[in-house]
Nucleic acid binder design. Structure first.
Length: 634
RNA sequence: GCCACUGUAGCUCAGGGGUAGAGCACUCGAUUCGUAAUCGAGCGGUCGUCAGUUCAAAUCUGACCAGUGGCUCCA
């Protein structure tokens, strides 16, 4: 057998991974979680064969964590079966952030149930049950799971040639492909998080099961960090901060559509201004109608595939719902392009629109600003020749990266290639993928390949950003589209005086303003950098004697374009300082007798406590103006 | 859309078959203060909406509306 370092070991036939690990060292034997045999991850207890390529997996291997979590799901089921005899069992996989298991029980699990179950899991772990793998015949499997209709259903779907395996840990037997960690004692750091209803097979026509979510890690620190992140997410929830900081609100009369307060609107406009500033170079901002006859959606293909997500509007003359609010801008952009004849000399043509869009999301999907029915994208469509793709994508990647950097968001690029379901010839896809990949590599930025994850009409680059507490959000996208130009019969006249098809690039950076602002609120925990802060400076006179001076200073700041307010309420200084800090205003400019006389302000920066700086108002103003201009972060 | 839970003052929340409570915010008065809550008084609610049960409903029941979590990252 060959080990990862290339060394070869001779072993008795039938030796298991566990025995191999033990023969290498006692430490490795203890740390071993599973074994990779010829690229396939297996249980340690399975026998090895002559000539196998072997790698022993320990908790340090990234592939090991899902095994632990999947095993945790079994341990959870073991505990639930003990406390709720007769509970039906569904699926219990590991997921990105942990694991879950679905149970068929007469009532939902309560938080108290979860506590009891978690305690019972500790008992299962203490018992140190080995995970025993067995290969069984279909008949045997049906016999074993005679009381588990959900498992029987799954067994009936397995192909004739598939090996059916079951895993046993102590009293619990489960139909399972495996593999698992060697025994229940491997699970040390885990936490049950929540219970929720979930349909069997995700089908709302099937019965509702009760799902328990949990998470597990090899290291205590990792679990602690995960739980901390959950806590921190709760504290930063944009729905709570939005209310607290008075940025936006929702009302039952317009579900899924935000009302922006004057403060929220400042942020919205600041983002829009920045976007426009970055796009002065070569972009054409246009506006198109919000309401269209269905003819447009028939051309674009939305009428057939997307209609249930569109808001249809009754046309009184025809008495038909044959008008619709636009759910996206692309068709209207294509229309604008097609309205004129274009020379190759004009390309690329870049249309940008910030119009409001409506999509009829199902009611249960709505959530704060992140899932809404009305929103605005920074929507751009670029019409260009194939040979321009590389340069254009290069330009876009740099632009988008720069944009995210301004907010201190770390972006990761994902390159998504042709999916199974697609349109267009392979030659076209080859060309499109080649052009995208070259452009990507030219930027020098690392990227991750997501094979088969492209749009049905073309490959794409997605931007995942990581926020201040390490959460990932999918934001920007650059998509090549060969389909739309066909549907809309888009053309340009080439240097050969013949008509040619342009290619379309769809591009969004914010995704939607609504969702992006939600992400920013959580990223900054409501403490926006100066250029985004709705209220940038709050002038706080110490007593009435400085009222006039403070008023004049506020006016000076405002004249310089700074969003300054005056807090001359009849409250103590302490009260107003506290209020300013809680409102997360970047600067409090305190004006006492000394400052009023000297034309200075005592500046208290947000979160810096009493570390104040007394500075001439003119110098302070100049600094603020510069920081806003530079969109300085902190 | 479906399931579970939730809906009481502008906000956060307590209460609960017999005429509605707190803190903060707001208004007024006193206080004029050097860096995270000064004191006092006052204003403020058809207890999400509509029905039903009851002598009596904010409380119990149902429907609806809205919000929150979830609804295969396949044994």
């Amino acid at each position: 057998m060959t080990l990862p370092d290339g060394s070869v070991r001779e072993l008795e036939p039938g030796t298991t991974g566990a025995a191999l690990a033990a023969s290498i060292g006692a430490g490795l034997a203890r740390a071993a979680v599973a074994i990779r045999v010829n690229g396939e991850i297996r249980d340690l207890v399975r026998p090895l064969a002559d000539g196998d390529q072997i790698a022993i997996l320990t908790e340090r291997d990234p592939e090991a964590l899902p095994l632990l979590r999947h095993s945790a799901a079994h341990i959870l089921a073991t505990a639930v079966r003990k406390l709720f005899p007769g509970a039906g069992i569904g699926f219990g996989p590991s997921i990105d952030e942990g694991f879950y298991y679905d149970f068929e029980v007469p009532r939902p699990f309560t938080p108290e149930d979860l506590e009891a179950i978690e305690a019972e899991m500790a008992a299962v772990i203490a018992a140190d049950h080995a995970f025993v793998r067995e290969e069984v015949s279909r008949e045997e499997a049906n016999r074993r799971f005679a009381d588990d209709p959900l498992k029987l259903e799954r067994i009936s779907e397995l192909g004739k040639d598939e090996t059916i395996t079951v895993y046993t840990d102590g009293p619990f037997v489960d139909l399972c492909r495996g593999p698992h960690v060697p025994s229940t004692a491997k699970l040390k750091h885990y936490k049950l998080l929540s219970g929720a209803g979930a349909y069997w097979r995700g089908d709302s026509n099937r019965q509702m099961l009760q799902r328990i979510y949990g998470t597990a890690y090899f290291k205590k620190d990792d679990l602690t960090q995960h739980l901390f992140r959950m806590e921190e997410s709760k504290k930063r929830d944009h729905r709570m901060l939005g209310k607290q900081l008075d940025l936006f609100l929702f009302h039952p009369v317009a579900p899924g559509a935000a009302f922006w307060t004057e403060k929220g609107t400042v942020i919205y406009n600041a983002l829009n201004d920045y976007m426009q500033e970055l796009q002065r170079d070569g972009y054409r901002e246009i506006r198109t109608p919000l309401l269209y006859n269905k003819a447009l959606w028939e051309t674009s293909g939305h009428w057939g595939k997307y209609r249930e997500n569109m808001f249809l509007v009754l046309d009184n003359e025809t008495n038909e719902h044959d008008m619709s609010l636009k759910p996206m801008n692309c068709p209207s952009h294509h229309l604008m392009y097609a309205a004129k004849k274009h020379s190759y000399r004009e390309l690329p043509i870049r249309y940008v629109t910030y119009d409001v869009l409506h999509r009829n999301e199902v009611s249960g999907a709505l959530s704060g600003l992140t899932r809404v029915r009305q929103f605005a994208q920074d929507d751009c469509h670029i019409y260009l020749m194939e040979r321009q793709i590389q340069a254009e994508v290069h330009r876009l990647v740099q632009f988008i990266s720069k944009y995210y950097e301004t907010f201190g968001l770390k972006a990761t690029l994902k390159f998504a290639t042709r999916p199974e379901q697609r349109i267009g010839s392979d030659a076209l896809w080859d060309e499109a993928e080649r052009a995208l990949r070259h452009a990507l590599e030219a930027t020098g930025q690392p990227y991750e390949l997501k094979a088969g994850d492209g749009a049905f009409y073309g490959p794409k680059i997605d931007f995942d950003v990581e926020d201040a507490i390490g959460r990932k959000w999918q934001l920007g996208t650059i998509q090549l589209d060969y389909n739309a130009p066909e549907r809309f019969d888009l053309q340009y006249v080439g240097d050969d005086n013949a008509e040619h098809r342009p290619v379309v690039i769809h591009r969004a950076v914010n995704g939607s303003f609504e969702r992006f602002i939600a992400i920013l609120i959580e990223h900054f925990a409501g403490a926006f950098p100066l250029w985004l802060a709705p209220e940038q400076v709050r002038v706080v006179p110490i007593s009435d004697a400085q009222h006039e001076a403070a008023e004049a200073m506020t006016a000076t700041l405002r004249d310089a374009g700074i969003r300054a307010t005056l807090d001359d309420r009849n409250e103590t200084l302490n009260y107003r300082i506290r209020d300013g800090e809680m409102a997360k205003v970047p600067y409090l400019a305190v004006v006492g007798q000394r400052e009023a006389e000297g034309g200075t302000v005592a500046v208290r920066a947000r979160g810096e406590g009493t570390k104040q700086e007394v500075i001439a108002l003119t110098a302070f103003t100049a600094r603020l103006v510069e920081d806003v201009r530079a969109r300085k972060l902190g």
